[in-house]
């Protein structure tokens, strides 16, 4: 017997259930929070990795540390603007913001000092800075030993160069260069080669004296055997003299021309010097935002490179879903 009472009772269920059962399938946009969450987590990890690993775009602390390791005299944008002076380094440099990096008068004529320096500069217009740099180089008789402009794979342009500057004009050159951009890092190392240089000169002098004596023996040689021995020694002495002269010449060149390795980054905002927590925090947010924009730009550019492949994969997936549904519907009908 059919249970009429149960069927009648079902007829009285809530309107919502009745309506829900025969409701036409409406397109409802459901925010895919789970997917958004996963993408956000992935992006966060990616950004974290990008920020932790010093790829070199930013004046990263890791890179600064590397430079700092060999410095006896350094300047950092995020720290004090005072220049530490190291007596042992043999430099004679003034502290403070108006730096006379190298005072010619205080460097003893007798001292043989080789100066190498590294500098990170930020600029808002790389072309303008390079133009100014070339003028400064010409003005002070300096020259570029090597240079690289890097524009690929990044939204910021970078310029690296090794510049040789006449040592007696290094201070003026640096002062002028400093005004062309924002110096975010500076380190310098001075190597005193006076002892080695003096030793080379003494050895050269001694060899030249020996050369003169050997030449006297050459004139007095009685037989062929003696002549051969003298010639052999003379040849050795001359080889050593040439070697020492080349070394001295090399030292002279290194002493006469200081070496500056410069790394220029084109940026939209300069790194600000600040010490308070609030300022540093504000700077971190600001710079972080700029880095984020750069990262997004890079991702978009990378996507643009891969767009055809992505479209092809999407089409394959859509086709796969379409065929699967068609196959399933046919199977259900059968």
């Amino acid at each position: 017997m059919k249970n009429n009472k149960l069927a009648d009772a079902i007829g009285l269920i809530k309107d919502d259930f009745v309506e829900e059962a025969h409701a036409k399938k409406k397109f409802r946009f459901v925010v895919p929070w789970a997917l958004i969450g996963k993408i956000a987590c992935g992006a966060a990890v990616l950004l974290l990795v990008i920020n932790i690993i010093p790829f070199g775009r930013k004046g990263s602390n890791a890179a600064d540390q590397y430079y700092a390791n060999s410095s006896s005299y350094e300047y950092k944008s995020d720290g004090s603007t005072q220049y530490a002076y190291d007596e042992e380094a043999g430099g004679a440099y003034a502290g403070g913001n108006t730096h006379d990096y190298r005072s010619e008068s205080t460097v003893s004529e007798n001292k043989k000092l080789i100066l190498t320096a590294r500098m990170n500069v930020e600029t808002k217009d790389l072309d303008e800075l390079l133009s100014g740099l070339n003028e400064t180089i010409n003005k002070y008789g300096a020259y570029i030993q090597s240079s690289t402009v890097n524009t690929s794979g990044s939204s910021t342009r970078q310029y690296d160069a090794t510049i040789r500057i006449p040592s007696d004009r290094y201070g003026q050159f640096l002062e002028e260069l400093k005004n062309s951009g924002n110096v975010s890092y500076y380190s310098e190392e001075t190597k005193d080669v006076t002892d080695s240089y003096t030793d080379l000169q003494a050895r050269l002098k001694s060899l030249k004296a020996e050369e003169e004596k050997v030449l006297e023996f050459y004139d007095k040689a009685a037989n062929l055997e003696e002549l051969m021995l003298v010639e052999e020694r003379l040849s050795e002495i001359r080889y050593e003299i040439e070697y020492l002269e080349a070394q001295i010449k090399n030292y002279d060149l290194l002493v006469a021309y200081s070496t500056l390795t410069i790394h220029v980054t084109e940026t939209s905002s300069y790194t600000q010097t600040s010490t308070s927590f609030g300022e540093r925090l504000a700077r971190a947010f600001k710079n972080g935002f700029h880095d984020f924009i750069y990262t997004v730009e890079d991702i978009v550019i990378d996507l643009a490179y891969d767009i055809y492949g992505i479209i092809f994969i999407i089409l394959l997936v859509v086709l796969g879903i379409f065929l699967y549904r068609k196959f399933r519907n046919r199977k259900n009908k059968n």
């Binding site: 009472k5 149960l6 009648d8 009772a9 079902i10 007829g11 009285l12 269920i13 809530k14 259930f17």
Partner: peptide, 12 residues
């Protein structure tokens, strides 16, 4: 019937 319907609503 309504009491049974309420019970069925609960189940649904």
């Amino acid at each position: 019937d309504q009491v049974i319907a309420d019970c069925i609503d609960e189940f649904l």
